[in-house]
C-alpha cells in the first residue's frame, strides 16, 4: 500500500523525536530512554497533525492540552515541542543541567508548550480530568490528551481519575496507555500484572481500543474515532516496545533509564534517521 504524504510526515517526525531524545540523553549522559522511545510515534501524530498548538503563543486558550502523566518521558515531549518551534534546538543539549528549561520530568513553569507539571505517577490523570471538566464548564472546545504508562497504572489514582472521567462523561478527554510491558523493575507481568487494559477501561465506562503504538496511521485513525464520541472518554491502548528504535535499549529488560554513550548515540541516530527516510 502506498504511504500517504501525511503518514510519511508522521513517520519523519517520529524519527526526529527519537533523534531528539537520543541527543538530549547523550548530552546528559543518561536518562529515561525506554518510555521516551515507546511514545515517540504517538507524540508525532499528536504534534504532527492532531493537536492545535501555537508555538508563538504557547498559552493560547484555544490550544489542545496534553498531559504527559508519565512525566519521565519528558525528553520525547521536548523533542516534539522543539520540532514544532516552541524553543531553540540548543536547549536539547541542556537536559537536566542546573537552570535548564528541560528538566527530567515535565514542568509547565520551565518549558514552553508543556501544559501540566507531572512526575509523581498517577497525578496527571486527575489533572487531565480537571482540564477536560473545566473545558466543559466553560464551553471551550479543546481536547485534552492524556498519556499514562502501563507501569503507571499500578497507581490507584489513575483508576480514581478513570472512574471520575466516565462519571462526568468527559468525551473531550482522550487517554493513551503506553503499553510497553516494562517498568523500572522489569516486565510488568512480573512486577505488577496489569491484566487487560481494554477490558478494565470498558468496565469503567470508557471506549477502549488497542492499536499498534508504532503505526502512526492506526494511531491517527484511533484518535479520529475517539473524538467522535463526545459523551464518553476514550482510551487508546498503545501496543508498544519499550526503547523502540534505540538498538541498545530495545529488548533489554532494564531499559527504563540508561546511560547513553557518544558511540551508542551516533549509531542509534544513524539507524533511526535511515528508518525514517
Amino acid at each position: 500500500m502506498q504511504e500517504s504524504a501525511e503518514e510519511k510526515e508522521f513517520r519523519s517526525l517520529a524519527g526526529k523525536i527519537r533523534v531528539g531524545v537520543i541527543e538530549q540523553l547523550r548530552a546528559f549522559g543518561q536518562g529515561h530512554i525506554g518510555g521516551a522511545m515507546s511514545i515517540a510515534d504517538t507524540l508525532a501524530v499528536l504534534y504532527g497533525g492532531v493537536m492545535f498548538v501555537d508555538p508563538k503563543n504557547p498559552a493560547n486558550p484555544k490550544r489542545d492540552r496534553l498531559v504527559l502523566s508519565k512525566g519521565h518521558a519528558g525528553p520525547a515531549l521536548y523533542a516534539a515541542l522543539c520540532e514544532r518551534g516552541f524553543f531553540p534546538r540548543e536547549w536539547l543539549g541542556t537536559l537536566n543541567q542546573g537552570g535548564t528549561h528541560l528538566p527530567s520530568h515535565c514542568d509547565r513553569t520551565k518549558t514552553p508548550g508543556v501544559d501540566v507539571t507531572t512526575g509523581s505517577l498517577g497525578q496527571g490523570a486527575s489533572v487531565a480530568a480537571g482540564l477536560a471538566l473545566g473545558a466543559k464548564l466553560r464551553g471551550e472546545d479543546y481536547t485534552t490528551y492524556l498519556i499514562v504508562g502501563d507501569g503507571e497504572c499500578n497507581e490507584g489514582q489513575v483508576w480514581e481519575a478513570v472512574m471520575f472521567a466516565a462519571h462526568h462523561k468527559l468525551g473531550n478527554l482522550v487517554a493513551f496507555v503506553d503499553w510497553n510491558k516494562q517498568q523500572l523493575d522489569g516486565y510488568t507481568e512480573n512486577v505488577m500484572a496489569n491484566g487487560s487494559f481494554e477490558e478494565k477501561l470498558r468496565a469503567f465506562g470508557w471506549n477502549a481500543v488497542t492499536v499498534n503504538g508504532h503505526d502512526t496511521a492506526a494511531i491517527f485513525a484511533a484518535i479520529t474515532a475517539a473524538k467522535e464520541d463526545t459523551n464518553k472518554p476514550s482510551a487508546i491502548i498503545l501496543d508498544t516496545v519499550k526503547g523502540k528504535g534505540a538498538f541498545f535499549a530495545e529488548g533489554v529488560e532494564f531499559n527504563h533509564s540508561m546511560s547513553v554513550s557518544g558511540e551508542q548515540a551516533e549509531r542509534a541516530i544513524a539507524e533511526i534517521t535511515e528508518a525514517a527516510r
Partner: peptide, 23 residues
C-alpha cells in the same frame, strides 16, 4: 458543584486541572 466520590487524591488533582482551565 462536583462530587468526586470518596477520592481525595483525585479530587485535589481534578481541582488543580480545573484551575489550569481557568476555574
Amino acid at each position: 458543584a462536583i462530587d468526586c466520590g470518596i477520592q481525595e487524591a483525585d479530587m485535589v488533582g481534578v481541582a488543580a486541572g480545573l484551575s489550569l482551565a481557568g476555574q
